[in-house]
């Protein structure tokens, strides 16, 4: 890959295990050392502007990987360089800045703040970034508009359907216009129409140069990505490129192709 910029994400020999002794679960392990049999850890580079779909069966370590990429969790071993900076060396305050400014995270289980209206949810990351209230409201409304929830702005999570909650979570991840969007099954709870809507939002974000990492079980969703990674038992076993990094995402290319 002949990219002039260094990869935005570089992980080196990263492992993540839970528990001790016999009960140890290696959620991320990479290939085993052919001599000692010890896990070597996962290596992965993601270029700026890439659109990566992570696939794999349940329990294969996708969410674990995503949490590490999103600086929500720390690896048991190995290094994670984000924009060339070793995340392991950042302190609490710097980490929260990274989470706030660089990363938009969509959780597998929505994770909306209870008893808080959709508008306030979406405003939250902006509030933590210190954006003024009028500006905050304007941008939050724009983000809600993008996911088609303008009329639901005043609703609380328990007054929204699963799909609507998912879309609030998407709006919340988009609102700060992060350079990197990490989405853990963002369409897992959506019907095919809403799925297309959310995916087209993500396609457009990628077209404007944002890096996307997306976990999915569905091949149709994976078709939108420029690169597909497949995990089995905490190791990457397939890494397929479907489209060049520097270009439109496949779905938009098709659209252009149809028109041409």
């Amino acid at each position: 890959m002949s990219s002039q910029k260094p990869p935005v994400i570089q992980i080196r020999r990263v492992t993540k295990s839970y528990g001790h002794g016999d009960a140890t679960v290696h959620a991320l392990r990479g290939p085993d050392d052919p001599v000692t049999g010890a896990p070597l850890g996962v290596n992965l580079d993601i270029e700026q502007g890439d659109f990566v779909a992570v696939m794999g069966s349940s329990g294969s370590g996708k969410s674990t990987l995503m949490n590490i990429l999103g600086c929500l969790d720390v690896p048991t071993a190995g290094r994670y360089l984000l924009d060339g900076i070793d995340v392991g060396h950042l302190d609490e305050g710097q980490l929260s800045l990274v989470r706030n400014r660089k990363i938009g995270f969509i959780f597998q289980s929505f994770n909306l703040v209870p008893r808080t209206t959709a508008l306030a949810q979406v405003e939250l990351p902006l509030a933590y970034a210190g954006v003024r209230s009028a500006e905050r409201r304007r941008r939050a409304l724009a983000a809600l508009d993008m996911v088609g929830l303008t009329e639901r702005a005043g609703h609380k999570p328990n007054e929204l359907s699963g799909g609507q909650q998912q879309r609030v979570a998407v709006a919340r991840a988009l609102v700060t216009a992060p350079a990197m969007l990490l989405a853990d099954e963002p369409t897992g709870n959506l019907d095919s129409r809403s799925t297309e809507e959310v995916l087209s939002i993500i396609d457009n974000l990628n077209a404007t140069g944002r890096t996307i990492v997306l976990i999915t079980h569905e091949d149709e969703v994976a078709h939108h990505a420029k690169r597909v990674i497949r995990l089995v038992d905490g190791a990457i076993i397939h890494d397929v490129r479907q489209a060049p990094v520097n270009g439109l995402p496949p779905a938009l290319l098709e659209l252009v192709g149809v028109r041409a």
Binding site: G70, E92, S96, R99, V113, L124, Y128, A129
Partner: peptide, 16 residues
């Protein structure tokens, strides 16, 4: 605690 986790994931500094 979950709510705290969400807020931290959205970049809430410890001080807040």
């Amino acid at each position: 605690t979950r709510e705290i986790g969400i807020r931290k994931a959205l970049g809430a500094p410890k001080g807040v």
